[in-house]
């Protein structure tokens, strides 16, 4: 089995590590880089708990091998906050709206919401539900998540303080 030395730009920092070919991107992030914010829910691409941004697009990190991410940019939940630790408007909106309970699907939801807001700052509720349609949540029934994304969009647009 081939072993690879890879460098992935994670949350703006070049991070290197060793990965055997079969190591998935999510396992690389969690076990090699110690970024345990991204979670594993199914390992077959259904639940979305492992969602990360790769090269500006949300993808399932359990469906990629780490070697495939060599030379690419990845953003995880840890990269959503500012360098000084200030939460992004989306993260703050999740907190304000209690858009979570157990927190396990939350990183994936934030990634999906973040991706949506990166190209659509006025999403309808339908568009929000679509954007998170590939992320399963067992706690919330989704509604407070939709409200949080809506509120974050308003905040970013500058419509509320």
């Amino acid at each position: 089995m081939s072993e690879h030395k890879i460098t992935v730009c994670v949350n703006g920092n070049d991070m290197s590590g060793h990965a055997e070919a079969r190591l998935t991107l999510v396992d690389f992030l969690r076990d090699v880089l110690g970024l345990t914010g991204t979670h594993i829910g199914c390992e077959h691409g259904v639940c979305g708990a492992c969602s990360v941004i790769m090269d500006d697009k949300p993808v399932r990190s359990c469906l990629m091998y780490a070697v495939q991410a060599d030379g690419h940019d990845v953003t995880t939940v840890e990269g959503l906050e500012a360098d000084d630790g200030t939460m992004s408007p989306l993260q703050d909106a999740f907190w304000e709206n209690h858009a979570l309970q157990c927190g396990y699907c939350t990183p994936g939801m934030l990634i999906a919401g973040h991706a949506l807001l990166s190209y659509n700052l006025s999403p309808t509720d339908e568009e929000i539900r679509h954007a998170i349609g590939g992320n399963l949540c067992r706690c919330t029934g989704y509604q407070q998540i939709v409200e949080a994304v809506r509120m974050a969009a308003e905040k970013i647009r500058g419509e509320t303080s």
């Binding site: 079969r22 998935t24 077959h44 691409g45 359990c62 469906l63 091998y65 495939q68």
Partner: peptide, 26 residues
């Protein structure tokens, strides 16, 4: 060959597909 992997990787995770060499065409 592995392209998107959205079907292949789950099959491999379940060990229903067991290629000895993956050629990445992404």
């Amino acid at each position: 060959l592995i392209a998107g992997g959205q079907t292949l990787v789950p099959l491999m995770a379940m060990r229903l597909a067991r290629p000895t060499l993956l050629i990445d065409i992404n």
